[in-house]
């Protein structure tokens, strides 16, 4: 993932007059720097054997977190840095190829304790 073009290292110390006027962000497409993946309590998992490649999930994902390669849903389907776990894709998939799995369920009890 690319880094912002403007220097935000001191952002927390900026004084009122240092911010761009009117809360403008002088770099478009900046939402990629904001990792919404941490909001997730459930993660989507796609079953490629069921998926018909209709691309509907790719269209409806509000975070552009579904990857497409060569006009097909990519094997490495979800960008978990940005997928916030809303479940829209699972809900909209016409063949129920996407399941929402609780985060952390793949861990063993010992791993959870650690």
């Amino acid at each position: 993932m690319s880094e912002p073009k403007w220097d935000l290292t001191r952002l927390g110390e900026w004084k009122a007059e240092e911010f761009p006027l009117g809360a403008v962000i002088p770099e478009a497409g900046n939402s990629q720097y904001y990792r919404t993946g941490g909001w997730r309590s459930e993660r989507p998992v796609r079953d490629p054997k069921v998926c018909t490649q209709c691309l509907l999930c790719w269209i409806v994902c509000p975070d552009a977190a579904i990857r497409v390669a060569e006009e097909k849903i990519a094997d490495d389907t979800f960008d978990y840095d940005h997928c916030k776990g809303c479940g829209v894709c699972a809900n909209e998939c016409p063949v129920d190829a996407i399941t929402m799995v609780p985060e952390g369920c793949e861990l063993t009890e010992a791993e959870k304790d650690a």
Partner: peptide, 18 residues
């Protein structure tokens, strides 16, 4: 020179400074 207008400045963000 594309920019974003109408951004979010929530809790802990610079709303107060704006």
């Amino acid at each position: 020179n594309p920019v974003s207008h109408g951004s979010f400045a929530g809790l802990g963000g610079p709303f107060f400074e704006f």
